[in-house]
């Protein structure tokens, strides 16, 4: 059993990253992923705990000149209830609505969900569609150092990210999507929430003069990390949305996903669902854009 020797409750990012610089520490916040992992023995506390719940500057949703910023400590409920996001980026709200349970949404933080790096992490999906960046902060040479990284480069494996031990994920940022941007989120299972995705799919794009532009496809639980299905995106990019394009997208996505068999589903079913969902996403997209036009 680990004896906790140091416990810190920083109230600013600067304070937090200075503490992180001092040596190995476990960052704690909402606890919704960490507590069960500790309990199951999948993770152990370091002897230093840094509880970042009081770092107020890491909370909240803001928009500055077309750039959205969601603080790392923002809860999933905050996202779900954000009128700004509901109006501008509904796909984020939709994903939040399918996230775990109300009680977990009330406690789980965005940074926690990203840093946990579950291949099935629901919040990654819409953020990947938005080409979001993560803001990683550390204390280097006696000052706060910030680097930004595309979210798609952040994940490297199940539970693994490029986050360094001295770094804190302080915020997620993304640009206002272009006009006509339409996105959808789909998640498997008969339950609306309290379900780890067998497959979750996000799709986004713009219909420009009858052809698809800026196609983004993100899929959860079909690869070691949340997957940007770039090959399938290419199949659709610049195409008009007809049955042949849809059929090719289905084929491409089923080729591109690399799921495994596990206790929740077989690779076959995840591949099958990926095909079902891309077809539905395109039908949804068609419906929305036709309506808009």
């Amino acid at each position: 059993m680990i004896n906790i020797e140091n416990y810190h409750r920083p109230s600013s990012i600067s304070e937090a990253v200075q503490l992180l610089q001092q040596g190995e520490a476990t960052i704690v916040a909402g606890g919704t992923d960490l507590t069960p992992q500790i309990e199951a023995g999948a993770r152990q506390f370091e002897s230093t705990l840094i509880n970042i719940q009081r770092v107020e500057e890491m909370r909240g949703i803001s928009v500055t000149s077309g750039r959205y910023r969601i603080g790392g400590l923002t809860t999933v409920t905050d996202i779900l209830e954000s009128t700004t996001l509901a109006a501008d980026i509904p796909v984020l709200v939709e994903a939040a609505d399918h996230f775990a349970s109300p009680q977990i949404r009330n406690a789980a933080t965005l940074a926690g969900n990203l840093c946990n790096a579950s291949p099935a992490g629901d919040m990654c999906i819409p953020l990947l569609l938005l080409d979001a960046q993560v803001e990683l902060v550390s204390w280097i040479d006696e000052s706060v150092s910030t680097r930004r990284l595309a979210l798609c480069d952040f994940f490297i494996g199940p539970g693994k990210t490029v986050l360094q031990k001295n770094e804190l994920l302080t915020a997620v940022e993304f640009k206002q999507p272009v006009a006509g941007f339409s996105a959808s989120f789909q998640k498997s299972g008969p339950r609306p929430a309290l379900e780890i995705s067998t497959v979750a799919m996000g799709f986004a794009g713009v219909l420009e003069a009858g052809v698809l532009r800026g196609v983004r496809i993100a899929i959860g639980a079909v690869a070691p990390t949340p997957l940007r299905a770039t090959a399938t995106e290419l199949v659709l990019e610049g195409r008009s949305l007809n049955e042949s394009a849809i059929a090719q997208a289905v084929e491409a996505v089923q080729e591109e996903v690399k799921p495994i068999d596990d206790v929740r589903a077989s690779a076959w079913y995840r591949t099958h669902l990926s095909g079902v969902y891309i077809r539905r996403a395109l039908a949804l997209f068609q419906g929305v854009t036709a309506h808009a036009a």
Binding site: V28, G31, T32, P36, Q103, N106, A107
Partner: peptide
């Protein structure tokens, strides 16, 4: 004003 799973939340918070 929020409900949470108290089995997951740290008491210090």
């Amino acid at each position: 004003d929020r409900t949470i799973n108290s089995c997951l939340m740290f008491a210090v918070d």
